[in-house]
């Protein structure tokens, strides 16, 4: 593990995107940032800019209109990056099975590294999901191999 990788483990910056969620998981993600759960003890900071972020937290089943936005955000993030699907509906579509405008899960649009269950996912579970994601991030090379194509959204 080189210095950059080590530093990345200690300060994973988070980008949060709501892809059609009911808000339940989103307020739990915000709860993670506040003093009781305090995700900042792992160095995680919520940022608004995809170019700064290492971890993409996505909630919601993804609908027809924000599919494009989600793909766009994912493509703007620099490698290495991980995607955490927070909540049951982000993982599989969940309760929104009969809804015509839903894609039924984040993995229908972009590759997902960690699935966090729960409706709404509890802050403890979200933090656990993030830590699992970081373990995966630690194994990723900090520079892409020569000639390798950058990871792209699934088409």
């Amino acid at each position: 593990m080189n210095l950059i990788q080590k530093a990345r483990m200690k300060s994973p910056w988070i980008l949060h995107f709501n892809a059609g969620s009911c808000n339940g998981c989103d307020i739990e993600i915000l709860s993670c940032l506040t003093p009781v759960y305090d995700i900042e003890r792992f160095g995680a900071v919520n940022v608004g800019n995809p170019k700064h972020a290492d971890v993409l937290l996505v909630t919601g089943p993804v609908n027809r209109r924000n599919e494009r936005v989600l793909r766009n955000l994912y493509d703007q993030m620099l490698d290495p990056k991980i995607v955490v699907a927070v909540g049951t509906c982000a993982s599989s579509g969940g309760v929104f099975q009969n809804c015509y405008n839903c894609m039924g899960g984040v993995d229908k649009v972009i590759p997902v590294d960690v699935y966090v269950p729960g409706c709404a996912a509890k802050p403890e579970t979200i933090i656990e999901g993030l830590i699992l994601g970081l373990e995966k991030l630690a194994k990723m090379p900090s520079k892409p191999k020569k000639g390798a194509q950058p990871a792209e959204a699934r088409t």
Binding site: R64, Q97, N98, C102, M103, A153, T155
Partner: peptide, 12 residues
């Protein structure tokens, strides 16, 4: 009939 239907064409 509105089941989970895939979009007619993929935008990307």
């Amino acid at each position: 009939a509105c089941e989970l239907q895939l979009p007619k064409e993929n935008p990307s």
